[in-house]
């Protein structure tokens, strides 16, 4: 084994790593925003819009991420949508992530007792104020583990972007491997690299959870134990 191939190509590897971080971060951000929008619409829209969103979610969940990427990158141009590999990768990750994030947000919204919204509405707060001031702050703490978990999963999907030639870590290192025939060394480096990224992400998540749930978890448990039966006459 000769790991000098790694140091010889350090700058390429470094830029590939940055592209991985950028597409990962961008994909998570796009997915979270789109997912939140989907979840809010699902909660407030009529049955038709809800049905359309449900179909979107089911279709994205039932198809492989790679096929979605191919559709976007190779199929897009015939619909007049020509994207660079990088943009296609970002958009693809965002779309793929949006449905899972939407499900996480929806669960979060529904786990907050309805009575809290009623109390806010009776005090005259508007629907937006209720979402932003009452529901989202509580929900974020509840769904933090799920958010972190899916963020890690999305990170593990980023190597797939190499198949549509996004110059991220996997693309760069397999390229170096093919060029120098140092397959084992480069693949080992990839394994270690992604493993460390996943670990880092979950450690960061655990730290965040501990900070965020300090005052709320106890309350949530108490509320669950109460089993509210608010509208029972």
């Amino acid at each position: 084994m000769d790991f000098t191939v790694l140091t010889d190509h350090a700058s390429e590897i470094g830029s590939g790593f940055l592209v991985t971080l950028w597409t990962w971060g961008g994909g998570v951000l796009a997915g979270v925003i789109a997912g939140l929008v989907i979840a809010v619409i699902q909660l407030s829209a009529g049955p038709w819009v809800r049905g359309v969103l449900r179909c979107y979610i089911e279709v994205i969940r039932a198809t492989p991420f790679l096929v979605q990427l191919f559709l976007l990158y190779y199929g897009g141009p015939s619909l007049g949508l020509s994207l660079s590999p990088m943009t296609a990768g970002l958009v693809g990750l965002g779309i793929y992530g949006s449905v899972y994030f939407a499900e996480i947000f929806r669960t979060g919204f529904t786990s907050i007792p309805r009575g809290q919204q009623e109390a806010a509405a009776m005090l005259g707060m508007t629907a937006w104020q209720i979402i932003w001031r009452v529901q989202i702050p509580q929900m974020l703490v509840l769904i933090l583990p799920a958010l972190v978990n899916f963020t890690t999963i999305l990170g593990k999907e980023t190597p797939v972007l190499s198949i549509i030639t996004v110059p991220e870590l996997t693309f760069v290192l397999t390229g170096v491997g093919a060029e120098t025939f140092a397959y084992v060394e480069t693949l080992l480096a990839l394994c270690v690299g992604y493993f460390l990224l996943a670990e880092l992400c979950s450690r960061l998540g655990q730290w965040l959870e501990r900070r965020a749930s300090r005052y709320l978890t106890q309350g949530v448990q108490q509320r669950r134990a109460l089993k509210p039966r608010e509208s029972a006459a």
């Binding site: 009623e118 009452v134 509580q138 709320l216 608010e230």
Partner: peptide
């Protein structure tokens, strides 16, 4: 119309955050 009305619930419905 509801501005002059207050309501108190069985489950209190305080905002825990």
């Amino acid at each position: 119309v509801r501005r002059n009305m207050g309501m108190v619930f069985q489950q209190f419905n305080l905002w825990p955050h």
